[in-house]
Design a protein around this nucleic acid. Structure first.
Lengths: 121, 121
DNA sequence: TAAACACATGAACAATCATTCATATGTGAG
DNA sequence: CTCACATATGAATGATTGTTCATGTGTTTA
C-alpha cells in the first residue's frame, strides 16, 4: 500500500506520479493554508457578515449593533471579539460606549469580491 | 424596553436613532447576507482550502488528491461534494476516474485577495 | 462612594460539521 | 457476467462553534 511518513494514505493506487510530485513541490506550507482557512472562517457566519456590513457604512456602538441586528448585547460582543482578533475591526472607547469600525478598506474589498462572484451565479 | 416586531432586542437603550435608521434602510436583504456567509463558510476549512490550492495548479483525480493531502478517499469525496455544490469546482469523468478542476478564475482571484490581505498583517 | 449604564467574558447547551467506517454506484477488463 | 477499481454516500461519532445566562469590569453621574 502507498505510504507517506509511514502512514498509509490511499488504499488505491492510481497516482499520476509526475503530476503529484510536481504539485507537492509547489504547495504552500501547511501553516499558511491553515491561517487562510481560519481567516475565511471568520467571514463564514451570518451574524459576523451582518456586523461587517453595518460597519461598512458607519462606526457603531455595541448596543446600536444589537438593536439593528435584533440580537442581545452578549451575542454581539462575542462576535465582535472574534472580528477584532482577526483584525477586521477596530475599537474606540468614548466614555461608557465602545465604537467599532472596519479596520481598513481591504475588508470592504474582500466583501465586494465575494458579492461580485455570487452575482455571476 | 425597545422592541422590534414585538420582540425585545436590546435591554439597554443607547440608540443613536438617526444613524440606526439610516443604516437599516441601506442594509442588503437577509437572504443575500446569509448566502454570502454560506459562501465564505466553504472556504473556512483547511481541507477544502488545500484542495483548492492543489486544483489551482492542476486538475486532479480523487485518489491523487487523497495521496497529496494524506487523507483517505472518503473524506476527500465528501469535501469535493461541498466544493462542487458551491460551484467552486467542476468534475469531468474519464473512464473510472473523475477529474476535478477549478470552476473558473474567479476562485483564484478570491484566494489571492485573502492571501494578499494576510500578507499585510 | 454608590448606583446605573455600556460592554466583556466564562460556563453551559444545542446545533453544526469534518472525518471515519461500511457500503453502494458506476466503469472497464477479462 | 463477474471481478476489480475509482468514486460516492449514508450513518455514527467526536470536535467545534454560536447563543444564552449569569456575572464581572470599566466608566459616568448623583
Amino acid at each position: 500500500m502507498p505510504e507517506q511518513n509511514g502512514v498509509e494514505v490511499c488504499e488505491f493506487l492510481c497516482a499520476h506520479e509526475s503530476v503529484v510530485s510536481e504539485v507537492r513541490e509547489h504547495m504552500p506550507d501547511e501553516d499558511t493554508l491553515f491561517e487562510l482557512a481560519e481567516f475565511y472562517k471568520v467571514f463564514g457566519d451570518s451574524t459576523r457578515i451582518r456586523i461587517l456590513t453595518v460597519l461598512c457604512r458607519h462606526e457603531m456602538c455595541v448596543c446600536d449593533l444589537a438593536t439593528i441586528l435584533s440580537m442581545n448585547q452578549s451575542a454581539i460582543s462575542h462576535q465582535l471579539r472574534i472580528l477584532k482578533q482577526a483584525r477586521l475591526i477596530a475599537a474606540r472607547r468614548e466614555g461608557k460606549q465602545v465604537f467599532y469600525s472596519l479596520a481598513d478598506d481591504h475588508v470592504r474589498h474582500i466583501l465586494d469580491t465575494a458579492i461580485e462572484h455570487l452575482a455571476e451565479r
